[in-house]
Amino acid sequence: MSGRAPYGLVAVTCAVLMVVLGLLVSGVGLSGPDALADGWVRRTFGEDVLRLLVLPTEAYVLIPIAVLAVALCLSGGHKLEAVLTVVGPLIAILANTWVLKPLFDRWKNTYLAYPSGHTVALVAVLTVLVLLARPGVATAVIAVVGAVVLGSVTIGMIGLGYHYLTDVVGGTLFAVATVCATWTLLTWAARRRAPVPSDG
């Protein structure tokens, strides 16, 4: 995984979009796009299917995936990537729970909803997997599978009443921003610590 790719630019762009969307929906209930998505999902899917679709957001699914990724990184001698696998999602989840949700103050039923915490956890792990994959086919496959999983989870969370569509979009943007920013900082710090080659 190259630290020279424009991960910082991706992080800033996603963060700005997340903030703009959050300001638009802050303190607001069902928006126009949310209402359209909600109506379509409820007409199309049954509850049993919806509960199956949200399974990838559960901790007992995500934690083993992250642990396996860490183990593979360490076995290959990729310590920096192992740190990213743990720190990136952890920062995203904690910042979303303790900072962003209270800041944007968007409620659904009795809980703060924007950005979606389920989405942040899932997309943070998926983003790490995309960054860790070898460039080329592996990256494309993981990205496509991740997009399908995210789409399925979105349907499930909307149908079960967990979140609005815009909550999921905001969670996706924040997770990508956080993981990319974390990787940018980690690679920058690693380069700062690297010994300077001698001219002699």
Rank of each mutant, 00 (worst) to 15 (best):
Val16Cys: 09
Leu100Asp: 04
Ser116Lys: 00
Ala69Arg: 04
Asp105Glu: 13
Val61Trp: 11
Val125Leu: 08
Tyr60Asn: 12
Leu17Pro: 04
Val196Phe: 06
Ala71Lys: 03
Ala175Val: 06
Ser75Cys: 15
Ser26Met: 02
Ala66Lys: 00
Pro102Trp: 02
Gly76His: 12
Leu129Cys: 07
Gly3Asn: 05
Glu81Cys: 11
Val168Gln: 00
Val83Asp: 11
Val141Met: 04
Gly117Gln: 03
Val120Thr: 04
Leu173Ser: 06
Asn96Thr: 14
Ala5His: 09
Phe174Ser: 05
Arg4Met: 14
Thr13Ala: 15
Leu55Met: 14
Phe174Met: 05
Leu17Gln: 04
Ala190Thr: 08
Leu68Ala: 14
Thr182Tyr: 02
Val144Ala: 13
Leu132Gly: 04
Val128His: 00
Val137Lys: 13
Val123Asp: 00
Leu30Cys: 12
Gly151Met: 02
Val41Ala: 07
Ile65Met: 11
Ser116Asn: 02
Leu74Lys: 06
Thr166Arg: 00
His78Met: 12
Val49Leu: 14
Leu94Met: 12
Thr97Asp: 11
Lys101Arg: 06
Ile142Lys: 02
Ala69Tyr: 06
Leu80Arg: 03
Arg134Cys: 11
Val67Gly: 06
Pro115Trp: 01
Val87Thr: 10
Pro195Ser: 04
Asp167Trp: 00
Trp183Thr: 07
Trp188Asn: 11
Leu9Pro: 08
Gly32Pro: 09
Thr166Asn: 04
Leu84Cys: 09
Val123His: 00
Tyr162Thr: 02
Val123Gln: 02
Pro195Trp: 05
Asp38Glu: 15
Met157Pro: 08
Ser116Ile: 00
Val141Glu: 04
Ala71Val: 15
Gly136Met: 10
Tyr162His: 07
Val169Tyr: 03
Asp38Val: 10
Ala95Phe: 15
Ala35Asn: 12
Ala11Met: 05
Cys180Gly: 08
Gly170Lys: 00
Val99Arg: 03
Val49Ile: 14
Leu129Thr: 05
Thr184Gly: 10
Thr97Lys: 05
Asp48Gly: 15
Ala35Trp: 11
Gly88Phe: 07
Val99Ser: 11
Trp40Glu: 13
Thr187Tyr: 06
Thr110Glu: 15
Gly151His: 01
Val196Arg: 05
Val120Gln: 01
Arg193Gln: 15
Gly77Asn: 05
